[in-house]
């Protein structure tokens, strides 16, 4: 699963620490999501999308093999 979290975070001029605090997760979780090492739960994905006033699939993009 690819994602544009880093881009959205930069657009809103937030540090990883600030975003983590706003979302109620650890900074390590934000780092892991941005690196594509961790796929967030649906709950967290929706929380992220709501926070950035975007849709989930604007931020999270399934890979070709995952989408099929």
């Amino acid at each position: 699963m690819k994602n544009k979290l880093r881009i959205y975070r930069a657009m809103h001029d937030l540090t990883q620490e600030e975003l983590a605090t706003r979302l109620g997760v650890t900074r390590q979780t934000i780092i892991a999501i941005e690196k594509g090492k961790y796929c967030p739960s649906l709950e967290l994905a929706f929380k992220i999308a709501r926070f950035f006033k975007a849709r989930v699939d604007d931020i999270f993009i399934p890979e070709e093999s995952e989408a099929q």
């Binding site: 983590a20 605090t21 109620g24 997760v25 650890t26 979780t29 961790y38 739960s41």
Partner: peptide, 12 residues
Amino acid sequence: VEQVLVDERAFK
């Protein structure tokens, strides 16, 4: 502690 110490990633 102000920040979150344990979250869904830690549980996973």
